[in-house]
């Protein structure tokens, strides 16, 4: 068991005009400490200027996504001991503009998420705006989309996706998985509209099926599977 590790942290302030650098911090660690704990130790005791985003500290809010030793992970969900190294490299997530240090601008990500209409659509507009009842569904109907509803919008899948790297317009794994989630929801009546948008230029056809989105998801969601299933539905429009 190590007592200390080196954190190699990416530091960058776009407003300063200086190029990005890496700074090394020596951090004492205890058993079961996470990368987020170590970063917060640095911020509290060594360098208060270090910028990072976090909130719940238990893999629920999805705020602390970053590249840890080259892989997109949640800092609060990554134990230092599991990395099994003396030096941990921490960088901001790729495929996002950097705001500062480890903080990235996720507005584009949320814009794409919003574009797939991540809410229940009802044909009756009045019912849509002022629901008069609960929409019940069976356990089997819930299981149709349950795994895709576990998404916490952390954005790690976008950071891992090679198509998002190459093509800004691609809707990306998170938005497409959510699109599929709502199509499979028995309470939703907007499948035709959703399938049309999935079949557009920036939709399901652009996926190369690298599968890295599913590999990095901390909640076990499988966006690559959702995209493949969505392709079939887009082909037959049902």
């Amino acid at each position: 068991m190590r007592n200390e590790i080196i954190l190699k942290v990416y530091r960058f302030d776009p407003t300063s005009g200086k190029p990005p650098t890496y700074k090394r911090y020596s951090v004492p660690i205890t058993e079961r400490e996470t990368v987020l704990d170590a970063l917060l130790y640095v911020k509290e005791h060594q360098d208060a200027t270090l910028s990072l985003r976090f909130s719940c500290r238990m893999a629920v809010c999805g705020s602390c996504g970053m590249l840890i030793d080259g892989l997109p992970r949640l800092a609060c969900y990554t134990q230092i001991s599991e990395l099994d190294t003396d030096e941990i490299e921490v960088r901001p997530m790729s495929n996002y503009p950097i705001v500062r240090d480890l903080v990235v601008d996720m507005s584009g990500f949320f814009e794409k998420h919003r574009s797939v209409m991540p809410w229940l659509i009802r044909r009756d507009v009045r019912e849509q705006n002022q629901p008069t009842k609960q929409y019940l569904q069976s356990d089997e109907q819930l299981l149709e989309y349950l795994q895709f509803s576990y998404c916490i919008k952390c954005g790690l899948c976008y950071a891992a996706c090679p198509v998002v790297t190459a093509m800004d317009e691609f809707l990306g794994p998170q938005a497409l998985a959510q699109l599929y989630r709502y199509i499979r929801d028995s309470r939703d009546e907007g499948a035709t509209e959703r399938l049309k948008s999935a079949g557009e230029f920036n939709g399901v056809w652009r996926c190369h099926f690298a599968g890295s989105c599913s590999q990095v998801c901390p909640k076990g969601v499988d966006p690559a599977l959702a995209i493949q299933l969505l392709r079939r539905r887009t082909l037959f429009m049902k």
Partner: peptide, 12 residues
């Protein structure tokens, strides 16, 4: 032509 149509033709 819509992307969906182009891809259906691709498969066919």
């Amino acid at each position: 032509m819509r992307e969906r149509t182009l891809m259906i033709m691709h498969y066919l």
